[in-house]
């Protein structure tokens, strides 16, 4: 209850009914699935149009797409992995765009729901990153990867009793969950924040229109919507750069 208004319960603001394959537990397709579908189609269309443009000087769509590639290269890959990280560009680019589309629907009218505010999307992506960095570590360092992570050099032998379980937990067990929860909780918090202000606006408008201005709920709603646009971008960036950092650590575990 906020100001005598019934706040919608949590399942009413994050759960959506299936509209395709309604009865299937595995294939039930709801709004979250549709947003993820957009996360596939929009970047694919953008990059496809850009890729068909010929000529040496990029312009229009291609210019935009190349600026995204430059951003991923200069802000994410080069500082964390280095020049050899360019071969992970497809995965990191997919992370960034897929998450960004899933986040930005939080403020897009008629969606008003970040797909990443459901645990499913972030968990899948975090598990992909988890498998990817372990695979990179094993591929480039063999089984010595696990040794160098679990038994870091330069540590006195008795301390391995303490260090090894901590490293095992933090690197291989907690890491994918913290990676997923970071994105999920951020977007869920933002969504609840916007829903709260929206409910306040609706309720108070219905009660007496001027109350909205008096309580600054409507300006607050606008301000938080703008804030959430930034959060969408930053969370997509943070998720991607963390995946890159994990891969970089797996590539050179001695650092």
């Amino acid at each position: 209850m906020i100001f005598g208004l019934e706040f919608p319960s949590i399942e009413n603001i994050v759960e959506w009914p299936n509209f395709l394959f309604k009865d299937s537990e595995l294939f039930g397709f709801n709004k979250i699935g549709f947003i993820h579908f957009l996360g596939l189609v929009l970047p694919a269309a953008l990059f496809f149009i850009a890729g068909r443009q010929k000529g040496l000087v990029p312009k229009g769509v291609r210019n935009f797409v190349e600026s995204i590639i430059d951003f991923i290269e200069e802000q994410i890959i080069l500082p964390t992995i280095g020049a050899e990280g360019m071969r992970y560009m497809p995965m990191l680019m997919s992370f960034f765009l897929y998450i960004f589309i899933a986040n930005i629907t939080e403020v897009i009218p008629f969606f008003q729901m970040p797909a990443t505010a459901r645990m499913a999307g972030p968990l899948v992506l975090a598990l992909v990153a988890w498998v990817a960095f372990i695979a990179v570590g094993v591929k480039h360092n063999g089984m010595g990867y696990f040794k160098s992570v679990l038994f870091p050099s330069g540590v006195p032998k008795p301390l391995y009793l303490l260090v090894t379980p901590i490293e095992l937990l933090s690197t291989f067990i907690i890491r994918p969950f913290s990676h997923a929860v970071r994105l999920f909780a951020n977007m869920l918090a933002g969504h609840i924040l916007i829903v709260t202000f929206a409910v306040l606006c609706i309720g108070l408008w219905a009660a007496k229109p001027t109350v909205i201005v008096e309580l600054l709920t409507f300006p607050g709603l606008i301000a938080f919507t703008a804030f959430e646009v930034g959060v969408s971008l930053i969370q997509a960036f943070v998720f991607t750069i963390l995946a890159a950092v994990y891969i970089g650590l797996a590539l050179h575990p001695e650092h």
Partner: peptide, 22 residues
């Protein structure tokens, strides 16, 4: 069901990025 669709679309995007788009 959300895990299924999220994984499906993400892997599709990754594969497209890797072999077609980038």
């Amino acid at each position: 069901n959300e895990i299924f669709w999220a994984a499906l679309f993400f892997f599709a995007l990754w594969a497209l990025m890797k072999w077609v788009l980038l």
